[in-house]
Amino acid sequence: MEILELPRKGAKHWQSVNLKSRELCEEAVDKVKQKTMKRRILLKPVFRDYDKNNNGHVTRNQMRQALHSNGILLSDEELFSLEERFNNDMGFNYFWFLREVDPKPQEDALYTGFIEEMKKLNREKPKAKATRQEKDIVQIMAKVKGKVVRERIRAVEEAFTQSCLERSPLTIPLQHIPTKDCEKNFLNFDERKILGIAMQKLSKKPDLQMNLYPVLRDYDKENCGTISEHQFQKALILREMMDLISPNEFEVICKCFSFERGMRQEIDYRAFMKALDILYATDKYNPF
């Protein structure tokens, strides 16, 4: 199917021009289009500077100067073919020319974008990858044990108590002390064992324990429930409780009750004292 172009007012009937001139004009328009797109040249302001009457027309020489000043070099035949197509009684119509060189992009229908947005909203979100804490069986069991102890959940005894106690009657059972679910204060099996022994030692001195809380509270100037590790150590030394535990046991206690506050790790002394109270109350009514 052939598309015929209607003659423009004051211009030649383009379909009546010989085929060679039309092809040459199309090549010239394509050259200008490629160079303007590649170099991102704006021709409209240049033509407007020459258009003193603001009627959309410039002279032939002005058209040639506008193209030449922007580095668009065309042969005389190509320039003549452009003049033959876009000239009329008033001169070179650069509006017609720019309409061919800078065609407006075809805009998509509004509903197309709406459909794409709805597809994105209704699309299933990818499942998040499992973290190391969700795969490590030791950390999973520590979470379960912590929840059982904190919430007093009745569970199968074999899963949460020490085994083979019937073969060693002199062994003192160690109560599980839950930690917060955090990587920084997570304790492995050996560390939990050390923690249990250290806390049992400290809970055996109720008189020292009663006098410890006021000292810890005095260090807590902001009444936020946490103090620094150095202040925690000074309080234990002041109440002569550091002599009951080893440096390794002290480090494990600090790791268990550590709390990230701001950019540093502090000790949650309230949780520490609560654990001591639980151990003391348990040991008080222990018949063995």
Rank of each mutant, 00 (worst) to 15 (best):
M1G: 12
E2Y: 10
I3S: 05
I3K: 10
L4G: 01
E5A: 09
P7N: 06
K9D: 14
G10Q: 05
A11C: 12
K12E: 15
W14V: 05
V17Q: 14
N18Q: 10
R22K: 12
L24Q: 13
C25Y: 04
E26Y: 11
Q34V: 11
T36I: 15
T36Q: 08
M37L: 14
K38W: 14
K44Y: 07
V46G: 08
F47S: 03
R48V: 10
D51M: 00
M63H: 02
A66I: 14
D76I: 08
E77L: 11
S81W: 06
L82D: 03
E84H: 08
N87E: 14
N87I: 05
D89R: 03
D89S: 11
D89E: 13
W96Y: 11
F97A: 00
R99C: 10
E100V: 15
D102A: 06
K104V: 15
Q106K: 09
E107A: 12
A109Q: 10
T112N: 09
K120S: 01
K120P: 00
K120C: 00
E124W: 06
K125S: 13
K125W: 12
K129A: 12
T131Q: 04
K135N: 06
I137T: 03
V138P: 00
V138E: 13
M141R: 13
A142C: 08
K143H: 11
V144R: 08
K145A: 14
R150G: 08
R150T: 14
R152Q: 14
A159Q: 07
F160M: 05
T161E: 14
L165R: 04
E166S: 14
E166Q: 08
R167S: 15
R167Q: 15
T179H: 05
N188F: 09
D190N: 11
R192Y: 15
K193N: 13
L195P: 02
M199L: 15
L202A: 04
L202S: 01
L202G: 01
P206V: 01
M210Y: 14
P214T: 01
V215L: 03
D218P: 01
C224L: 09
I227T: 00
S228I: 01
S228W: 02
H230G: 04
Q231L: 01
K234W: 09
L236V: 12
R239F: 10
M241V: 09
S246A: 04
K255W: 06
K255E: 02
K255Y: 05
S258T: 07
E260R: 07
G262H: 07
R264W: 08
D268Q: 03
R270H: 05
K274P: 01
A281D: 09
A281Y: 08
D283H: 07
Y285A: 11
